[in-house]
Design a binder for these strands. Structure first.
Lengths: 370, 370
DNA sequence: TGGGTATATGCTCACTTCGAGTATAAGTGC
DNA sequence: GCACTTATACTCGAAGTGAGCATATACCCA
């Protein structure tokens, strides 16, 4: 229903986009579903995601659509519609993630994106928009600590941080050092798997995320503005430590530095980072993992999947003790013989726990390693 | 900048409202800031919040405004603008809460609300919209357990739940019983202070929240639709237990049952419930309490405020051990002599903890009582 | 002046949880 | 049979949690 003119000023309305971060897992690989840029908003003019203004052609993006007032009674219904249209996947878990609304997140017009997190069991996809599963850690190579500290941190990130600190005005040095330490677990700080978004934003400012370089060419002020709002659970918290870096003429990026990880169109990689952060945070206190697993599974498989999302290896014996104590699963009585060793018991998720305990999750308090 | 017609279909745009849940504390009372309905969206036609369609005149509502494309580079800037215009309060913490977008949350047109949580230190307010501090627990009397189990639970809520269960079809009984037990900590389930929104939604369905009755008169389907999306951290999780109650002709509300708690206009009390839930959840792992406290405070005062938000009394000695162990505060060296007993040491918040530990909060794992 | 009361603060103790290691069970392939 | 792989069980010390007891220092009032 169009808003009646004279009652609604043109300023007061904006396009409302819906974005879906669809997550699954296959083997030990956490997966993100992307589509071709041209397909995300079918029927749009050219000039949207994938062309040169957005950072070169061929960038994938998140499945998205605009809210359709006649079809979508609720936002979630809208997202369900778009997921089923573009991918056909049955979604097992839905959660609103964050609403992105910076003025210039889409060049040329004001467009909000209400982003949703969706979990599905893995299956091959096809659809109008060439949907494709992507390894999450190809987008965020620094987030995968399962095989130890990712080499990209020492090779590229720490040097960039040091250069950034070296170029800092003295009054900013302390703040910046603190921020870098905390975000990447340097010095005395420990790596916190959950701070995915903080890390992405810092790398973005350091021009180590490729979108930054492209966007920067269009004008530094815009690039800086895009970074300012901070979604997710760590929301406004960090603002208290003093204002974050404003647009800062002093620091010049290395010309066209190699971007780290595979970029997505526009701010979609940022949205994906917010989703990974939310997912990791939830692992500890909500039984969300089970939504990407089949009906029955072995404990090793469960651990594999948790490790895939957490980006961290876990202590095997403690993991099963935790799962046992949490009463999250029950044995089906069957066995998986394909283990290559002793057969593993198969388990199923006990949905009843949802009513038994306030916050049923694998109580991974600090997502502790092995 | 107006969207150019012909490019944007009328369906794809909606009004974007911004809502602020401004929270503070005075004494032992947690506070929510409301304004007169007519002031929330100045310059609107009549027919918005406070008139009879919304549940009777005189209902207060949350401070709100529409996104102004020319003024608000980001959503957060927009909320800052509206808070400062309508209340003049200096906000110390900001966090995006949830985006509400059901078709009929505002009668007559599609309007999104992007809600923000804001924390301020208490001070008297005045402004164009008659801003007023409200006791949070007058809106949600069942949430305050500081002086034991609130009488309203046994007097009104449990009877209503029992009537609801008695009127249930047999195949729904189990699901409904589970839901009620879990939500209100009946039987074997424990009361979980965080599940504020679950409780509000159940009471809403039971017609114990006043907005429901008013809205119901306009048409049951609409009322049911408004309940469907579930914001906050417990987002989609509960959907897994099977679909929630759909619009259900079988259960008839008692005619005009006494509403529990003070209602707000439209769905604003729901938004406030989401905010309280978020705040309670955050207490444990982010040092947000300090944003409503003055620079220096006694440990008892700190505990008082935590208890006010948590709605639960805490064990004093353990609380101070927790605070001490968390290294969240440091003594100022001064004392508060107005205690009426032994003078209390004054402390200040150590902002450095934000960089030392991943999730610095009062580690109230289960918000454990005394 | 001294006791009663209120508040603040320090400490103990049993119990649970957590991290890490060691040991055993039960399959496969040769 | 053996070597190898994976699954599962159990142990033990360190740290954290919940509850209570004890002490310190103010005020009030007889």
């Amino acid at each position: 229903m169009p808003t009646s003119p004279g009652r609604t000023s043109s300023r007061a309305s904006a396009r409302v986009g819906l974005s879906a971060v669809i997550i699954s897992v296959e083997g030990t690989t956490p997966l993100l579903l992307t589509v071709e840029a041209s397909a995300a908003f079918p029927g749009e003019d050219a000039g949207f995601p994938g062309d040169d203004a957005g950072g070169g052609p061929g960038l994938a993006c998140l499945p998205g659509a605009h809210l359709d007032d006649s079809l979508d009674g609720t936002l979630e219904q809208g997202v369900r519609r778009l997921v089923s249209t573009q991918t056909g996947l049955p979604v097992r878990y839905f959660e609103q993630l964050y609403t992105f609304g910076d003025r210039d997140r889409v060049p040329g017009e004001r467009e909000l994106a209400v982003a949703y997190l969706a979990l599905v069991r893995y299956q091959a996809v096809q659809g109008p928009g060439c949907p494709r599963w992507q390894d999450f850690y190809q987008l965020f190579p620094w987030e995968d600590w399962r095989n130890g500290r990712p080499e990209v941190i020492d090779r590229a990130i720490i040097p960039a941080i040091e250069a950034w600190l070296a170029a800092s005005a003295p009054d900013r040095l302390a703040t910046r050092t603190e921020r870098a330490d905390l975000t990447f677990g340097l010095r005395h700080a420990r790596w916190d798997p959950v701070r995915v978004l903080d890390r992405f934003e810092l790398l973005y400012e350091l021009r180590l995320a490729d979108e930054a370089a492209a966007r920067l060419a269009a004008g530094p002020a815009r690039a800086a503005a895009r970074v300012s709002p901070t979604p997710g659970s760590s929301g406004g918290s960090r603002r208290r430590g003093g204002p974050r870096e404003a647009a800062d003429g002093a620091w010049q990026p290395r010309a066209r530095s190699t971007g780290l990880g595979v970029p997505l169109a526009l701010d979609h990689r940022r949205i994906a980072a917010a989703a990974l952060e939310r997912l990791r945070g939830k692992l500890a206190y909500r039984p969300v993992v089970f939504e990407v697993l089949p009906e029955s599974f072995t404990l090793s498989r469960l651990q594999q999947v948790v490790e895939a999302f957490a980006g961290q290896a876990l202590h095997k014996q403690n993991f099963r003790r935790l799962v046992g104590a949490a009463n999250l699963v029950e044995p089906t009585g069957e066995e998986d013989l394909r283990t290559g060793g002793r057969p593993a018991e198969l388990y199923r998720f006990r949905r009843e726990v949802l009513r038994e305990r306030p916050a049923p999750g694998l109580g991974l308090r600090r997502l502790g390693g092995p």
